[in-house]
Design a protein around this nucleic acid. Structure first.
Lengths: 117, 117
DNA sequence: ATAATATTTCGTTATATGGCGAACTATAGG
DNA sequence: CCTATAGTTCGCCATATAACGAAATATTAT
């Protein structure tokens, strides 16, 4: 029950849901998500740590960046089912669709900054 | 997104989850749930109204009593999937198991009060 | 009609939560 | 070494939420 409630509370916030859904197309670093949500870095960091504590996201550090991603197959069944529930429920959500487009642009522009052709 | 968040917030509270799971074995009146959760009537009423607004429960009035139940097949797909998620996630939960036993006793004793043999 | 029971609504209070900025840690680059 | 960048932690404030009791509503029983 405790684990379930940790997950349910983590999913009961629009910013965290948007962040989670944005990870469907692959990992993102924190600054990507900051730009997506248009919130203060400290706020986004807190949101991500709540998702992380619920095991709804995993992290990978690469130099200065910390990449967040959806958990893999070895994640607890409860976690996987929860993510499936969110993704299924919001597969056609308009906000999520807009975010997906915005994220593509954000990732592109960040790439452009680091490896200019 | 709004409907989803209404549901997610409704599910992010232990008392409401316990009430919802208690309805798996059939409808209950408010006083049953008050006795189960051991909270003030006004508190339980508020919890149930939150579940109701999220369409996670339906009601039926019978005399003095108002019976709450899980929604039927004509409930929105999103609602049904949400309930399935909760029930699946907590199918083996210890608190829920204890509650199921307690509810059986509560219902029995309420029946005994009204139709004494 | 009156009393008792079931439930809801309302007002209050304490705590939880989301938001921010400032300060801190860590890494990369000049 | 110094600066810039990425991220987290901490402290603060405003709002949201869960809890209660008192009062209101509705229905049944006396």
């Amino acid at each position: 029950m405790f684990d379930f409630l940790t997950i349910a509370k983590a999913l009961a916030d629009e910013s965290r849901i948007r962040a989670l859904l944005a990870l469907r197309d692959g990992e993102l670093c924190v600054c990507d998500i900051i730009e997506l949500l248009d919130l203060a870095p400290s706020t986004v960091s807190k949101h991500l740590s709540i998702l992380r504590q619920a095991r709804l996201v995993e992290t990978r550090k690469d130099g200065r960046w910390i990449y967040y991603r959806l958990p893999g197959d070895k994640a607890p069944h409860q976690v996987q089912e929860s993510i499936r529930w969110v993704c299924d429920s919001l597969s056609k959500d308009l906000t999520a669709k807009k975010d997906a487009i915005k994220i593509k642009r954000i990732v592109r522009s960040h790439l452009k900054n680091s490896c200019q052709i």
